[in-house]
Amino acid sequence: MSEKEPLPPGSWASSAGRRRNMQAIRSRDTQPERLIRRLVHAQGLRYRVAAKPLPELRRTADMVFRPVKVAVFIDGCYWHGCPEHYVPPRTNPGYWSDKVARNMTRDRDTDRRLLDAGWTVLRFWEHESADVCAAKIAATVGQMRAVQGTSKVR
């Protein structure tokens, strides 16, 4: 699809180029996620990747430690409205700003539902130190295992 080609009917993109760009953005396995996962795995912890903590909830966490009920989210600064790094879009601002606002609302709803179901929710921004994130994840999982009296690796 070149810049001159028409957009498919009902497309949200402001141009064919923008559409290609947005379709190329990963929703999982981003560089920050992979780095944090590698560090957590190196500490001997095992987890599910891009899994639903609650089967009835159509939302996935980046890392799920099911036995101890810990869900980890690594949020992108743009898509989740980071207070430090979010820059409002210049192209089609109404659509994209509304999308980010909906993402933020959904994030809070997800947190509430997981907390109500007895889960511990950890959220990190993509710009945070992977070492610090991995250490906090390992500490939290360790604490939850101690509370539950479990020593399982998974």
Rank of each mutant, 00 (worst) to 15 (best):
G81I: 08
G81D: 07
P93W: 12
R112P: 00
P88A: 14
R102K: 15
K69R: 14
G76I: 12
G118W: 13
V64K: 04
R58I: 02
P93V: 14
C82K: 03
L54T: 04
T110Q: 02
A134E: 05
H127Y: 13
K52D: 07
C77Y: 03
P53W: 11
L122H: 03
R108K: 09
C133Y: 06
P88S: 10
N103V: 11
R66V: 11
L54F: 07
R123I: 09
R66N: 04
V49T: 14
A51C: 07
A51N: 09
A130S: 14
P83K: 01
A71I: 08
E126M: 11
R123H: 12
R113D: 00
F124A: 01
D98W: 14
H80S: 07
K52I: 12
A61W: 10
D107V: 09
M63I: 08
T110W: 00
V132G: 00
I74H: 08
P89A: 15
W79K: 06
V87W: 00
L115C: 08
E84V: 14
W119Y: 01
A130R: 10
H127D: 04
L115E: 14
G76F: 10
P83L: 04
V49Q: 09
R108F: 10
H127P: 10
W125V: 08
R106C: 01
T91G: 10
D62G: 04
L115A: 09
A117N: 00
W125M: 02
G94H: 13
H85G: 02
A71E: 02
P89I: 09
D116F: 00
E126Y: 13
P93I: 15
A61C: 09
L54G: 07
P88D: 08
R48N: 04
R90K: 14
A117L: 00
D62C: 06
R59F: 03
P67F: 09
G118V: 10
A101H: 14
P55Q: 07
P83M: 05
W119P: 00
R58Q: 13
Y47D: 00
F65R: 02
H80Y: 01
Y86D: 01
F65S: 00
G81T: 05
K52F: 06
P83I: 08
P55G: 12
T91Q: 15
E56T: 09
H127S: 08
W119Q: 03
R102N: 14
S129L: 02
V49Y: 03
F73P: 01
D107Y: 03
L115K: 05
P93D: 08
V132E: 13
K99V: 07
C77F: 08
A135W: 11
A101I: 06
A117M: 00
D116N: 07
D62P: 04
T60S: 12
V68K: 01
Y95H: 15
